[in-house]
Simulated scan of single mutants.
Amino acid sequence: MHGLTVDHLSAVDIVTWDAAQGQAKLRHVSEQIGDQAERDLFWALRGAGCGNFGVIVRYYFATLPDAPDHATQFTLAWDWEKITKQAFDQLLDEYADFVAHMPNTDFSLLKLNQVENTQIGLLVQIASPVGASFQQHCQQAETRIQSLQQRFAAIAPATVLRRPMGGHPGWINTLHASLSAQHLTYLEALQTVNGSGPNQFGKYKSAYMNKGFPQNQKDEIYRWLHDKPEGLAADALAQSLLQVDSYGGVINERSSSATPVPQRSSIMKLQYQTYWNNASAPGQRHQSRHQEQAQAHLDWINGFYQAVYAEYGGTPNPEQDKNGVVDGCYYNYPDCELGTHENGQIDQAMQLYFKENYRSAPRNLVQVKQRWDPQDYFHHAQSIPIK
């Protein structure tokens, strides 16, 4: 509805390291003040801050959009035992078309849970347009929901959720106990999907998509959601999933160079997620049995990801995609398997995150890093390099 948070950022206070004088310095940077180098720094901080240029101590938002007054939430669930491969393919096709034509007031999460969860879940949220009364909003939302129910009914019979839909963001702590819509205030809607879930280990991987799923991706997603890794308990992957977020809307009204975030034509944002817990004491998670448990989860999610994007070299690399389906990865789900300084593949990772904004665009992140942190003082596994 309103684009990305960084699209609304108006200024930043940041502590940088002055290499020449050997001391830290607090700076206030924005698009309106300072010299060009400071404006370039502010540009970089709108999507590529992440410990690359300094320590951010304050964010400024000159104006922010008003929140909607109301929102309606609706969930559908499908039992895995009733989802055939054909129905699964139809579900992914229908969902991609649904989000591609979704009004900016709407948002959805498709929770492609691993088969051990027993269900697939779909959440749709409809925010009230400006000026609409509660009654008007409810009438409009109910009409859209009826259309949505009819649209997905032909794929497989829907049912209610038997457990909260997992994954993060969007951990839904409360059950929608029927197939009826819930009409809420917008704050209540936020509280429903804003929990972070249990405190446990987890691993994320990401991908942006400009189009619907090709057949080979649908095949691999279905196969890996049915995979039973050796060495894990029967229900160990019950929280593991591929979450497909609706994307686009106002996000796609900005140019790919307006901020470091270049993915401005995507219609879906994918989050591969797996979670696990163990009884290790603090500092003992690397003991044999705990490490083996973690490795089994990592092997599953990394294998899943590589199989889905095998035709592009194992990642959603737009440079290897002649059909323009995939559009790289999201930097805020750091994924060291994409490449690090240590393994010499940092360029591959940064290219997936930032595309031309990494190195080749007239204004790019490597140049900003060279100007503001020439000694590479702010360095981590996937920090922007100085060369």
Score class of each variant (00 low, 15 high):
Ala24Glu: 14
Ser147Ile: 15
Val15Gln: 11
Thr118Gln: 01
Glu116Val: 07
Gly313Phe: 13
Thr185Gln: 05
Ala67Arg: 08
Gln239Pro: 03
Asp376Gly: 03
Ala381Cys: 13
Ala307Ile: 04
Arg163Ile: 10
Phe53Ala: 02
Trp372Tyr: 09
Thr75Gln: 05
Phe42Arg: 01
Thr16Lys: 11
Leu338Cys: 02
Ala294Tyr: 11
Thr143Trp: 07
Ser255Gly: 13
Val29His: 00
His176Trp: 09
Phe213Lys: 01
His341Lys: 06
Gln217Leu: 03
Leu45Ile: 05
Arg151His: 15
Gly248Lys: 08
Gln191Tyr: 04
Gly121Tyr: 10
Pro157Gly: 07
Val115Gly: 05
Thr143Glu: 04
Leu187Tyr: 12
Asp69Ser: 12
Trp372Arg: 01
Ala281Lys: 08
Thr315Phe: 14
Gly170His: 03
Asn332Trp: 14
Ser30Phe: 02
Ser255Asp: 07
Asn210Ser: 11
Trp43Asn: 00
Asn216Tyr: 14
Gln191Met: 09
Cys138Ser: 10
Ile56Asp: 15
Trp224Met: 07
Asp347Trp: 02
Tyr60Asp: 10
Glu356His: 02
Leu4Lys: 09
Tyr186His: 04
Arg46Asp: 04
Ala11Lys: 03
Glu38Pro: 02
Asn323Ala: 10
Gln86Val: 12
Gln284Glu: 13
Lys218Gly: 08
Glu94Ser: 05
Gln306Arg: 14
Ser30Gln: 11
Gly121Pro: 11
Asn252Thr: 06
Phe152Asn: 12
Phe213Val: 03
Leu161Asp: 15
Lys387Gly: 13
Met209Pro: 03
Gln271Asp: 08
Tyr331Asn: 10
Leu241His: 03
His168Arg: 01
Glu342His: 01
Gly303Glu: 12
Thr105Glu: 15
Leu242Ser: 05
Ser10Leu: 12
Phe304Ser: 14
Tyr305Ala: 03
Ile145Thr: 05
Asn199Phe: 13
Lys369Ala: 12
Ser196Val: 13
Tyr330Phe: 09
Ser280Thr: 10
Phe134Thr: 12
Arg46Leu: 06
His290Trp: 05
Ala96Asp: 07
His286Ser: 03
Gln239Phe: 11
His2Met: 14
Thr63Ile: 08
Asp376Ser: 07
Asn323Lys: 09
Tyr247Cys: 00
Val57Phe: 09
Gly344Pro: 14
Trp17Asn: 14
Trp43Arg: 00
Thr16Ser: 13
Leu190Gly: 14
Asn117Asp: 12
Ser178Asp: 15
Val57Met: 10
Pro260Arg: 00
Asn278Lys: 04
Ala20Gly: 09
Arg363Gly: 13
Ser206Lys: 00
Gly121Glu: 15
